[in-house]
Design a protein around this nucleic acid. Structure first.
Lengths: 165, 165
DNA sequence: CAAAGATACGTAGTTGACTACATATTATCA
DNA sequence: TGATAATATGTAGTCAACTACGTATCTTTG
């Protein structure tokens, strides 16, 4: 992976993805090592339902920043293993209200110490001169103001008048 | 995406992936805006072949840090649109040697100014107190020493003796 | 120098997110 | 109040990476 290192910022997308994958895979191994039958991809949904115990499909999707179809397929898996349940909202028949089952709440309590260890491990791993979580937050904030595309358009325009190009 | 923000470091994997996706999607739009028929996912392969003009499949995979099956499917696409070509290595019949075609080299030259703009845009977007690229490099380096799993195991052990748990 | 192991490439199927589209219910307003 | 728009959910198929496995060729070694 020498060459990609040299590409520097141009390959940042690739490297973010690889880092994300690596952490998720190890996340799964950590759950397994603790004898917990849980997949990292379920975390956002379960976390959302722990914070807000009764949510519709779209509300969960918004909370976790996924599209609703992705959320639906996660919920399908979680319902299958009985960690969440759902029922129609009587006030609005379009909505399906989701909540943790007792089994789900029990598992959350069992996972809390594992989450604590994960959080401490990740804190340690990202405790470097440039903090990864902070960096992500900072870039997310900048992207909210101006997307990569818009930023490139701006630089393209100013570059056109620039002799150095 | 309130809840996931609050999950902080535990949701770092999700956030890295989302950021990566966002950048890649805009990357595609930037190529399109420049009238260039190129997909961001091809960048690592093309970049590698620009730096080292003749490589086998596995060598490319190693350079860009992908598995060889992923590399093969990228190469298939690139051969289809005639940006790269391949021939058997006469010295070692197992190997297939890959190189840019003249069309490929021409496109690289056409893309260079676009890459320049992208690099400048990304540099601007990641020019924050905590530099994203540096942060990624730093975490990659730490993970090389000790994986997330190993780190968690260590913390788990020390935590067991700790009254605060 | 043949058998066993290592290496290179390829195929098939999986994964975890996505987009596009379809349907059902509710809300709005002329 | 009926037509239209908006919202909520669902389905189907895509995408870009992956793992697992298989075959062909080369290398090593008893």
């Amino acid at each position: 992976m020498n060459i990609i290192d040299e590409a520097g910022i141009l390959a940042i997308s690739t490297r973010l993805q690889r880092l994300s994958d690596q952490l998720r895979k190890d996340g799964l191994l950590i759950y397994q090592a603790c004898g917990i039958d849980f997949e990292p991809k379920w975390f956002p949904v379960i976390w959302a339902l722990t914070a807000k115990p009764l949510l519709s499909v779209v509300e969960i999707a918004e909370e976790i920043g996924y599209t609703h179809p992705s959320t639906i397929s996660l919920l399908k898996e979680l319902e299958k293993i009985r960690l969440v349940r759902s029922r129609k909202d009587k006030a609005d028949e379009r909505k399906r209200l989701i909540a943790l089952t007792p089994k789900g709440r029990e598992l959350v309590e069992k996972m809390r110490p594992v989450w604590h260890v994960m959080a401490r491990s990740l804190a340690e791993l990202t405790d470097t001169p440039n903090n990864l979580l902070r960096a992500v937050e900072e870039v997310e904030a900048k992207l909210k103001e101006r997307s990569f595309l818009e930023c490139a358009k701006k630089i393209w325009k100013t570059g056109k008048d620039d002799v150095s190009l």
